[in-house]
Structures are given as structure tokens and as C-alpha cells.
Design a protein around this nucleic acid. Structure first.
Lengths: 193, 193
DNA sequence: CTGCGAGTATACCGACCGGTGTGGTTACCT
DNA sequence: AGGTAACCACACCGGTCGGTATACTCGCAG
């Protein structure tokens, strides 16, 4: 049986294009990076890019989808390794975020950055960003239910999560995710409004 | 005595340019908006813009500085109106954020957005963004000292603050600032690590 | 009356933008 | 052997980018 990946199969050149674009978009910004630069950097002609992806908008969306996919995989993997204790699993999301941030997130959340750059409300990339946050909120809601904790905590957990990413990038708080973890730990002992 | 504003005096046309640029930069993004568009929208020729501001980099920096100035003024004003109780003053920062977000922050924090777009680490606009976060962190540190609360809370308060802005914009939590306020209220009763 | 700062209008610069078209070369599949 | 998907090289499109140049008008202060 074929692997039920949601990602479409990519030709070798398309793979290189997507990887190159992902790196350039994240480190330099989406609008700044032109298709010619991506083509050069990937060792590919623009023709190939447009044959595979159709438009810059599609390429941007593919980049965001791939990154979202990688992040969800990272998070769920760490969650699986966190053991059965429901409360520990909630806190493990912040450990996962800390590892992710340390590894490759020196420029903040790619979804938030893309959301800032893609001002056109019809850009499909915006929906990818929105859905990631929706998914994370739903994840927290589920984890809270497993821990028999009030669902009203979910908003706060999400705020701590997003705040940690931003604070690590633009304020100089490299360990913000761990700070958020501690705060979440203490908050879960209190009663939400 | 002349008013001791840090802002340089602007000619009427320069004022219009800065206001127009501020609106366009915030709503559509910095890189996307060209100087021709700003000139048209402000009813001014490009010549005038370059006579007054010298370069796009300078105009962007002026935009960020002006916005930062407005935000600090907004926050300190609300803080002054919050009364003398030190703990209430801490929580008042979130009320101020909520009012600010409601009024004009539908597209997230301008500093964070700019930080995402200005990938060149030497761009002076980045320093404006960094300084705003540094200032806010220092403010929280001061307010905590006034309230005889541990300074270790400052990081968490900043994280809640930044997270509320992001969550309100890209996750659909319009009242995130109030949620952050409640969380801060409960957290201040706990002991930080 | 004169000089100057502020502003307008218009045209221009080279470089780059996203996107298209033509034609040719591999390599694999049947 | 023939077909096709993948890719390359290259040239081109209209439009916009940040930035500059020239030349002119206006109001105002000395």
C-alpha cells in the first residue's frame, strides 16, 4: 500500500526548488526573494519552477504547507515520547517548541512572518498559517480534556506558546519556551475565569 | 520653551508622506509597498519624499519610530490612569494592549512584522523593534519591583504580552489581551523558578 | 526686491519583478 | 523503436523597483 502522505510526490528538481525556496523565504522574507534567485540557487531554470509549481503563490503555499507538516510531525513525535501522564504531555509541547526554536527558528515563526507579509486576504498561504494555530488550539483543548483540566486554559496555553516564539526571536530571550513551560505549569494549578 | 519632542519637525508634505506610508506599510507590508505608490497616495511627488527622507530605509525607520512612540505614549498614559496600586498597574498594561489591539492592531504587532520583513540585520528599523521589546521588558521589571514581586516574572509577563498580540491576529482570539491579563493575575500569586 | 525653502511636474535610469515561449537534450517505460 | 516526462538554455514580455535629474512655481522673510 502506498504511503498516505498528504504531500504530493515531487520530482528531484522540484524537491530542490522547494527546499531552496523554503530556506530563502524563511531567512530573507517571501516578497524579497524573487523567482530568478530561487532558480539560480536551486540550480534550475525558471521554466522548471513554473512547470512544477505554476506560480509564486503556489510555491509559497507549498513552502508553508511543508513547514507546517514538519512542525506538526516534530511536535507529535515529542508528544509520543513524553509518556502517558496528561499533564506532562501538555508541558512537553513547550519542550518541543524549545528544541524546534533552538534548531532552526532564529527568525521567529514562519507562519506568523508569512501572515505579516501576505497582506492579500485571499492568499491561500494565509489559510495555512491560520489552520496551524487552529490545530494547535485544538491540540491543547484535547490535552486539557485528557488531563481533566478546564478547557478554558487552552487560550492561555496558546498565548504562552506564541509569545515564546516571538520573545525568543525579537526580544532576546532564547529560553523563552522554557519560561513559558514553567508559567504553564504554575497556571494549570489555578482556576481559569 | 519649545516642546522637547524627540521627533524631528516635519513639513506638511512630509507629515502626509509619513502618515500615508505608515498606513500602507502596516496594512500591506513594507516590501510590497513602493515609493511611487506612497507618493501617489500622499499627493506628493517622489522628489519630495527623497528630499525629506533620503531613502526608503530612512522612511521605514521613521515609520517604526513614530509608531513605537505612539504605542509608548498610549501605554504610559493608561498606566498613569491606573492608579497607584503596583499590582493593578501591571495588569493595566494588558488592558492598554487590549484597547490598542481593538483600535488598530488587526494585523498584529508592527514591530514583529517589520522584524520579519527586514531580513538585513543592519537595517536600523530592526533596532527600533528590538528596543521596543527591551523597553517593555524593563518596564515590567520596574513595575514588579514597585509591587515587591520577584523580577523573574518579567520574562513571563513579556511572553504573555507578545503572545496576546500574535494570538489576536493570526489565531482568532480577539480578546487574547484580556486572557493574558487573567493569566498574569494568577501567575503573580505563584513563585517563579 | 530678492533669495530661499518647499513643493510640483515629468522624464529618465539600470535593475529586477513574475511569467511565457521556443527549442533541444537526456533517460526511462512500454 | 517510439513516446513521454523531466529538465536545460535562452530570449523575451510589460511592468515596477529604488533613486536621480532638470526645470518650474509659490509663499515668505530679509
Amino acid at each position: 500500500m502506498a504511503p498516505a502522505t498528504t504531500e504530493p510526490r515531487l520530482t528531484p528538481a522540484a524537491r530542490r526548488v522547494l527546499d531552496t525556496a523554503a530556506h530563502l523565504f524563511y531567512t530573507r522574507g517571501i516578497t524579497t526573494v524573487g523567482m530568478d534567485l530561487i532558480a539560480d540557487e536551486a540550480g534550475v531554470t525558471k521554466k522548471t519552477i513554473y512547470d512544477r509549481f505554476g506560480s509564486k503563490q503556489n510555491l509559497v503555499t507549498a513552502y508553508l504547507r511543508a513547514r507546517d507538516h514538519r512542525w506538526r510531525h516534530h511536535l507529535t513525535t515529542r508528544l509520543d515520547a513524553a509518556g502517558p501522564d496528561p499533564r506532562a504531555r501538555i508541558l512537553a509541547t513547550y519542550d518541543a517548541l524549545h528544541a524546534w526554536t533552538r534548531a532552526e527558528n532564529t527568525r521567529g515563526c514562519a507562519m506568523v512572518n508569512a501572515y505579516a507579509e501576505l497582506s492579500d486576504p485571499d492568499h491561500p498561504g494565509r489559510r495555512v498559517a491560520e489552520e496551524q494555530k487552529t490545530w494547535l488550539h485544538a491540540l491543547y483543548t484535547r490535552l486539557l480534556a485528557d488531563a481533566a483540566l478546564p478547557a478554558a486554559h487552552a487560550d492561555t496555553l496558546l498565548i504562552l506558546h506564541e509569545g515564546a516564539v516571538t520573545a525568543a526571536a525579537v526580544a532576546a530571550l532564547p529560553d523563552a519556551a522554557l519560561t513559558a513551560r514553567d508559567a504553564a505549569d504554575r497556571l494549570l494549578g489555578t482556576t481559569p475565569p
